[in-house]
Structures are given as structure tokens and as C-alpha cells.
């Protein structure tokens, strides 16, 4: 096994009286590692600790064998894509990524070149000169990824990078992340959706209630998931047409129409997501704008696991 890129040792983190992480230890190695857990599990706290944005209350977090808190030099080798959907909206995507990589010491011309390449790598070059404020949710997610990779880091820390993306953009980003992993970078990516993590990697850290429940291969918990119906919310232009198109889908348990959205419960999420991506790409059943998965179903699996 390669040397650990990230080593978290007996780390606890308190927010006043509230415990965010409870005595966790974990390692991240080259390749893609998925951090899976329901909302409130402590995933973001762990990622912020690894990205040096928080200081552990107890224990140590080391990245490339250096303590990360108060060590800005490490950010030459680390790229962080935060969860929050916040930008300098009045700047264009290219200006923003250029300005940020200038902070890494790049000259104006180097920064512009690197930013163009990064925008291209997330398939956003065509929109590079548009203001970020005018970007769609998927584009905003991708420009966040561009700023994380622009300086060519060895470790990428990505907090819910697929949140709110449409299926086509989601597929592109999953491909990107897998590509970064296979190119030798270490990628730590969080999600509360097992299907997303599974499509990127088989190496996972499973978290709940501030603890790591399991780490290693995803197959071990895969079977458990299928016992629990998976709920998916799709925001789209024509929910009725979409519902009609999916009525015959294998494993479908329920369909619930909402205003401009459809909530589907399925026992076969893999097949569903696969068909959803095809349908979204073809545009046959209208425009699919956003796909999200409430984590209630995943919460049920975690509760089952910790019993």
C-alpha cells in the first residue's frame, strides 16, 4: 500500500457543546476515496479539517506528512472545492479562476493560461467569459472544481461536488474525478448518495454521527442499500411526461408529482440513474434541470448498520 497522503489520527472536533467528530482515525491514499454519510454525519467537518480550515480539538491531521492547520504552503499541493455555492458573482468564470491562481504566485500570463486549461478541463471554456452570476447550478459546481484543480494539486478535497447537477453534467464530473484519480492524484470526495460514490470509486470511508463506521471496499454495504427504497427528486420542465415515461420502470415503487418536480422511489437506483442519464441526454421527456436525493433512505441504511 502507498504512503498515506492524508493521515487523520484520533481526531475529535467540538463546536462548543456539540460534537462534530468523535475520535476518528482514517487514511487517504492515492486514487479516489469516497466519503459517504448522511447530512450531519461530519463529512464536511472532516474535509474542512483536512483542508486546514478548522483546527482539531483533539488529535492530529497530517497532509503529505505535514500538519495542515496554519500551514498555507501546503496549498500548493492541495485543491479544495467547498460545499457552499458562493462566488464573486460579478466576475466571469475565467477572471475568478485566474485571480485565485494568481494567489499561488502565478504570473498574469501563467495564471490566464492555467485558468483556461482548468476551465477547459471542466468543459466550461465556452462559458469562461460569462459572469458567474449568470451560471447554472451545474456550471457553478464546475467552476468551483476548476479553481480547485487550476494549480495542479496532488490532493483534491471535494465537498459534495455533484450536488444539484443535472445528469449530463453529473456524468461529466464523475468522469473527470475518476480521471484525476487514475492520473495519480489523490481525490477525497464526499457525498450522501451511495450511487454517486460508487460510480467514482470502490474505496470509501463511511461516516455517521461524527464517527467512521467502516472503511474499505464499497461492496460490503452495497447489498444493504438494495433492501431500502431509494428516493430521488428530479426538477424538470414537464414532470407529467417524465412520469409517464417512467411508469414501466423496473423497481419503481412510487411516483409523486410536485410543482415542477417529480419525486421517485425506486428499489433499483442503478438502473434508474442509468436510464435517467440517457433520457436527460436525449431530451425526449423534456428538460431535466436538477437531480437530488434526500438522504432519508441512506439514513435508514446507516441506522441498520449501527444497530
Amino acid at each position: 500500500m502507498n504512503a498515506a497522503v492524508v493521515a487523520v489520527e484520533r481526531v475529535s472536533k467540538w463546536y462548543g457543546q456539540v460534537i462534530g467528530l468523535n475520535d476518528i482515525s482514517a487514511e487517504v491514499h492515492p486514487g479516489v476515496t469516497g466519503l459517504l454519510g448522511p447530512n450531519g454525519a461530519g463529512k464536511s467537518t472532516l474535509l474542512k479539517l483536512i483542508a486546514g480550515q478548522l483546527k482539531p480539538s483533539k488529535g492530529s491531521v497530517r497532509v503529505f506528512d505535514e500538519s495542515v492547520w496554519g500551514n498555507p504552503g501546503l496549498f500548493f499541493r492541495v485543491g479544495f472545492c467547498p460545499e457552499q455555492d458562493s462566488f464573486y458573482d460579478q466576475m466571469t468564470g475565467l477572471e475568478w479562476v485566474t485571480a485565485l491562481v494568481r494567489l499561488n504566485g502565478f504570473s498574469e500570463s501563467e495564471a490566464t493560461e492555467a485558468a483556461r486549461l482548468a476551465m477547459d478541463s471542466v468543459d466550461l471554456l465556452d462559458a469562461a467569459d460569462k459572469k458567474i452570476g449568470a451560471y447554472s447550478k451545474g456550471m457553478r459546481q464546475r467552476v468551483k472544481l476548476a479553481q480547485a484543480v487550476v494549480h495542479g494539486p496532488d490532493l483534491l478535497v471535494l465537498d459534495e461536488p455533484l450536488a444539484g447537477m443535472d445528469p449530463v453534467a453529473r456524468r461529466q464530473v464523475i468522469k473527470l474525478i475518476k480521471g484525476w484519480g487514475s492520473s495519480g492524484k489523490s481525490v477525497l470526495v464526499s457525498s450522501h448518495i451511495l450511487h454517486e460514490i460508487e460510480s467514482m470509486t470502490s474505496t470509501i470511508l463511511l461516516m455517521n454521527h461524527g464517527r467512521i463506521l467502516a472503511e474499505g471496499d464499497i461492496a460490503a454495504i452495497r447489498g444493504l442499500i438494495d433492501e431500502h427504497p431509494h428516493k430521488i427528486r428530479i426538477r424538470l420542465s414537464d414532470p407529467r411526461a417524465f412520469a409517464r415515461g417512467f411508469l414501466d420502470h423496473v423497481g419503481l415503487r412510487s411516483l409523486c408529482l410536485e410543482e415542477g418536480a417529480l419525486v421517485i422511489e425506486t428499489e433499483n437506483p442503478d438502473a434508474f440513474y442509468s436510464r435517467l442519464t440517457e433520457v436527460a441526454a436525449s431530451g425526449a421527456l423534456g428538460d431535466v434541470q436538477e437531480v437530488s436525493s434526500p438522504d432519508d433512505n441512506l439514513q435508514a441504511v446507516f441506522e441498520y448498520l449501527v444497530k
Binding site: F76, L103, N104, L117, V122, A146, H151, S183
Partner: peptide, 14 residues
């Protein structure tokens, strides 16, 4: 799509 630049030996800006 292309691969982003990989920085050379990084020098901490003053």
C-alpha cells in the same frame, strides 16, 4: 477537455 497545468517547483510568494 484538457489537463490543467501542473505547477513546477512551487515558490512561496513573498
Amino acid at each position: 477537455m484538457s489537463t490543467p497545468l501542473t505547477s513546477n517547483v512551487p515558490v512561496v510568494p513573498s
